[in-house]
Design a protein around this nucleic acid. Structure first.
Lengths: 214, 214, 214, 214
DNA sequence: TATGAATGAGCATTCATTCAT
DNA sequence: CATGAATGAATGCTCATTCAT
């Protein structure tokens, strides 16, 4: 339910001086603001530097271009999307509880970062680097879920007719698509809890996890 | 599994003369070619007119701009995505058969028009007109499915715990997302049949439609 | 206080058929509407033909271009500006009455055709043909007034220090400029009567026409 | 006899570095040249930048568009038109001397900047910003003269029948119109001195300022 | 490091005018 | 006469990126 952020083709090396660190951070924050406000395509480098209160040229001291800056912004968001602290809560032996906790955490995180998640979708559509990145992540993520499903099948806890890999991809896609519809497109009014309840139920039903089995 | 195409804000009126109709059609075909080849952002009007073998200005006799031309191209595709001839095949009283037929038809149509479907996603991310359009369609489509689910629930054929609207949106999203992953991002190698089998199974399981019930 | 309209370099010959006469008239009316609404520069031939309800090409059956159409429109206005029926009213032997009648007539006519007078100024600024035309008119008009002033001077009724030609040009200019300020730029709120009273007084004073002399 | 220059809606901020100041000045000079040579409508940005020997884009570092550049050019001219050094010369207690000095100064300044004054008229006809600007100036200028006339009337030195405001507008208009006729349209051959003599005489007569009164 | 001025390629769009039907 | 489709030249403006200071 989370994807790992990698870097696009080119990057500048990290700043050396303390001032450099500060400037870079200012730029990343300004970039986030501008990207959220204007979208990736309409965001102009000069808007970012103006927002950060630095000269236009300074941008290139820290980033190779817009993509690079965008990657830097996304890195901030990724931590949260990648590592929700759900393990503390969920009983790892109860598949339903695990699924539910994961979905809930994903939806909450998605809602909090809706604008940037929308941006991520947008950029993935536009920029080959980010598209490849996203495909790679979807693959990795799907494999993890596929293994979990596979294990459940082996333990007789899930529908053995299902192709674990396809099922994993489909169900993950279902969740992320719902999050997108709800929090990016503003579809409906359901709360994360309501959404999670339905999604988990669909997910559990879909895998054929019967309650008495868990 | 299908969405209805409407027109963006501005359009030119239809050509009056026969020559006009011919020229417009030539332009739409050229636009399709260029869009598929270069994507929406990189497509240039002059490429389209060059491809069509008309003067640059002629484009504006028929379209108000790139978006308008894109809408015209999409209209061709929509017919097929919207009206798969599945009713002939499927036994309307067998929910599983109906779902399976719909999924299969959608996947096949999606594969055939994969490039343009990708473009549609791309443009929806970029252009507010198309985004709004898409949201409207998703709503209409979801409602149709929600009613079907509702009816199944009333007949005791589907899990009554599910919110019909949310379930409909989620499952539709699952299918279209899989189509996108498979045919746009090139994820995996599964055939439409394999995909449909898994998707239908997930869908049927998720709704709690037991075979013996149908 | 009035200027004669001549034609620009090129014209089409008058229509032959009755239908032609009608179409031409429709176009002239449409042109007047569009010119008044959009100004000369922003008026488009297609707007005129659309307004007239004829095809674009038809315009060129009757006019060689925008200037030609504009000249046709102005001809309608000119009659009134050129031949105010003031002679009936004014006592031709009372210079003050003549001047006053002329000024009053000019202001009233100007007000009625303010939009087109503004256009005339605009076009004279832009188009060399019209500019030359206007200069020629100003000359002719000035000469007429100059002769009148000259006669008054010879009769001892006007300040002999004044150069008749320059005085005539200056005072005519004063009147037309005031009309322009008041009715085109919307300067002030004075009525034609109020304006005429002041202008005539200035004119009479300026020429040194003493009341007891008349 | 003079009008104050204000700026059109949009402007770029002044250059910070010395190089910027230099480049801007070069552009203003080039713009003046091109405007005088080609007129406002036919002047192309690229001609200006070519003339200045800078890249096309550099123009937009300093100006928002043609209007903005034109305003910058006019500002140079305005200083001279606005502040003729006539107070030194004229005896401030002799109204006739003051009027004559003002007229003379205006005509001389107008002649020197005839091409740009013509442009100013042209642009005022075309551009609403400049038209508004001009109206505002005419108002301010008229009020100043109206007060002077009013004072003369109170001192018994001018015709009390006249509306001071209208008279001021009319007489100012007379002068500027003559300048336009003479130096823009090339009407006649009179020298500034000849013109000023007649205009002052007309002005003085018109206001009823008798010599023995001063 | 920071600055900010200079670069310049690149493309959409308009609209008067023509002419085959 | 009327139609209306086709033409195509012509140019403003943006903005990422560089680099001398």
């Amino acid at each position: 339910m989370a994807e790992r952020q990698a870097l696009p083709s080119q990057t500048r090396r990290a700043p050396v001086s303390a001032r450099g660190v500060r400037t870079r951070q200012t730029l990343v924050e300004a970039a986030r603001l501008v990207f959220e406000r204007d979208g990736f395509l309409d965001a102009r480098i000069t808007d970012i530097t103006a927002e950060a209160g630095v000269a236009a040229g300074t941008f290139y001291t820290y980033f190779t271009g817009k993509e690079d800056a965008f990657a830097a912004v996304m890195e901030e968001v990724n931590e949260e999307m990648l590592h929700p602290r759900l393990r503390e809560i969920a009983d790892r032996d109860d598949p339903v509880a695990v699924i539910d906790a994961a979905n809930r955490a994903y939806l909450v995180a998605y809602r909090r970062n809706a604008k940037l998640m929308a941006l991520m979708e947008q950029v993935a559509q536009i920029d080959p680097d980010f598209r490849r990145l996203r495909l790679r992540r979807a693959r990795a993520f799907g494999e993890r879920n596929a293994q979990a499903i596979s294990r459940l099948q082996q333990r007789g806890l899930a529908d053995r007719e299902l192709d674990p890999q396809l099922a994993a991809d489909a169900l993950s896609g279902m969740v992320s698509r719902m999050a997108y519809l709800r929090y990016v497109l503003g579809f409906g009014t359901a709360s994360p809890e309501t959404l999670a309840r339905t999604l988990t139920r669909l997910w559990v039903n879909a895998l054929g996890i019967t309650k008495e089995m868990t």
